[in-house]
Amino acid sequence: MNLIRQALTVVRKDLLLEWRGKGRLISVLLFGVVTLLLFSFAVGPDSTLLRAAAGGFLVLALLLSSTLGLSESFRVEQEQRAIEGLLLLPVDPIALYYGKTLSNTLFLMLLAPILTPVALILYSVELDLEGLAVLFGLWTLAAAGLSAPGTLYAAMTSRLQSQDVLLPLLLFPLVIPVLMGAVKSITLILTGDPMSQVGSWAMLLASFAIIYWSLCGLLFPHAIEEGI
């Protein structure tokens, strides 16, 4: 279908841009690593405390890095007004939204393979392969949840002054369910899940992602109709 084809072309283009401008991915990754390091200084060298908080710190590193990635994904669009060029082609706004959201989700997923090992080592947590797989699944759900409203708001704030303040201000309170769900479930993975609660937290993450993928897809065409 044309819509899906367009969305996938947008994703392909974004991934190509990502690949060409590797600097962006690397700097966001480094930012994530630095935050992980800073959290351990905030707690002190107490390994029991660190281990208990490891899940929380890991998710916070994802959340803080996400706004950098999201605003960057629209900075390339605004630089020479490429987004206007896309709309003129014409790219269906719905295809544009889902393309951008999907590529932002993929971008945030790419943070996991680096940030997770760093967190495991820094906070001396051990995790088997199965645990890693579940963690990556949860990470994916969280990334999808963050990207849906994140892409909408990044687009809306991309031409406003002080986007750097506005985007986190809008996004952070909104994604508290994602934060809580991811922190709780990942902590359970890291420290053991005697009552098998991970499933319900994963459900929460999935519902958030589904609700906001649908809602923001509906709202995005209205948002850019006013000019972007």
């Binding site: 909408l152 369910p177 809580m180 519902s207 609700i211 709202l219 209205h222 948002a223």
Partner: peptide, 24 residues
Amino acid sequence: TWTAIATIVAFVDVPLVYFCVRWW
């Protein structure tokens, strides 16, 4: 338009936040 969009996005979050905090 943007006020309306942001209001809708925020309101839909209310039940999610409530249940989430309750579980938390």
